[in-house]
Design a protein around this nucleic acid. Sequence first.
RNA 1: CGGAGCGUGGCGCAGCUUGGUAGCGCACCUGUUUUGGGUACAGGGGGUCGCAGGUUCGAAUCCUGCCGCUCCGACCA
Length: 458
Amino acid sequence: MVSKQDSDWFPIMRLSRYFLPVQKENPAEAEIVSHRLMLRAGMIRQASAGIYSWLPLGYKVLRKIEDIVHDEQQKAGAIPVLMPTIQSADLWRQSGRYDDYGAEMLRITDRSDREMLYGPTNEEQITEIAGAGIRSYRDLPRILYHIQWKFRDEVRPRFGVMRGREFLMKDAYSFDLDKDGARHSYNRMFVSYLRTFERMGLKAVPMRADSGPIGGDMTHEFLILAETGESAVFLDRNLAELSFGDSAIDWEDASALQGIVDRYTASYARTDETHEEAVFESEVPEDRRLTARGIEVGHIFYFGSKYSKPLNATVNKPDGEVVPFESGSYGIGVSRLAGAIIEASHDDKGIIWPEAVAPFEVAVINLRQGDAEADGACEDLYAKLNARGLDVLYDDRDERAGAKFATIDLIGVPWKLVVGPRGLKEGVVELVNRRNGETENLSPEDAMNRLAATYGRA
RNA sequence: CGGAGCGUGGCGCAGCUUGGUAGCGCACCUGUUUUGGGUACAGGGGGUCGCAGGUUCGAAUCCUGCCGCUCCGACCA
């Protein structure tokens, strides 16, 4: 488990002083459940088509998702950088994509009539950076990544942040001397993705992607299984049951990584784009054939010297030969994940956040605001939970119990600590699990210990 | 890009056909009441009716143009 994040950025919170514009009614424009819930829970507000502001609650979730992605990228050996959103057209002319990319690319001219663009992706830019900074085979391999806003002028933005025009993406780029090295880098990212999504409480399955003009087997999409997914997916049920748990990984051991990748790619798993029914039926026994829907949250591919060649990003080999980098790129839709997690985890009351990405880890609910005993007990719990490193929201609004439960359930806090005069007379508070509704009456101390243990805090 | 539709307080909507100076529910404010899963009553604040032009004594309503947004389909983290 991650430790409580960024407490300086996200100070402890009591709801009476927070900014949480929740709505009782469904916005008319929101068709899918994650979009509806994000609007109702006050996570986002639309600025224009496919462009959103992230309000405090949504921003907090986004940051928690980012934290996990950062952590897993770096564990896998990738190095963080930050490239600009605005790029010069020149680089894109060199790679030949300035004309190829078409209307999806937002083009801008500055005051000197220079042609600029709001980056839809960063292959050109990172290749230029790597080319300038890496001269020798001794400097390889390297994987650089950043998490940055992208803009793609989609013809039809929809589904809230699931397909916005502006979106936050983690994109990593690998640089290797040869194809074997590139495969190792590819496998690092492959395994990193499995861990990343698993940590977020998601079941993401790698599926063979359309390899396009480059060809080869080194391209996979990672899809979360969710009823409302955009793509139909076909897979061996066994794949959906694989998991890492806590097992350690030796990222430098190329053959070990290859073993993991092989295990996850041994069984049939494809989207409707590459699906072949005959192959599906011959490779997967009938009782293991799973047909479902999925949301694409990651995409990795190897593209060799597609960019290094035209951009002249080269490196010296031991024998003095000068060769272009062998590269791949590896994307995770960070802002999309916020929506995708909700698609995969909600009920009719609202969002059910997996603990690792929940905006708040526990909500203290005061059933009788203004009652001296209840107020005192809540303040005490609030202070102590904070001191123990838990991300706690105290619902201290002067509202009835029902309104508090409705709000807290809507915004999906995984645990509720329910405090009222009645329970306090017996010396207990209620610890309620959002997902299954299970309730336990515990002493305040026991309840806090239980929460700390759940989140791996002292 | 092809097809359909919608813009009226923060949200959900009615009013438009048949022009007469804007209404309902939620939310918000005040008071009373209530208090262990969205209390009840009373009072109240808030809207250039997307924008511009036109017709008319008078336009949310009719006409023209523009802008914005959504949905279905083809394309993508």
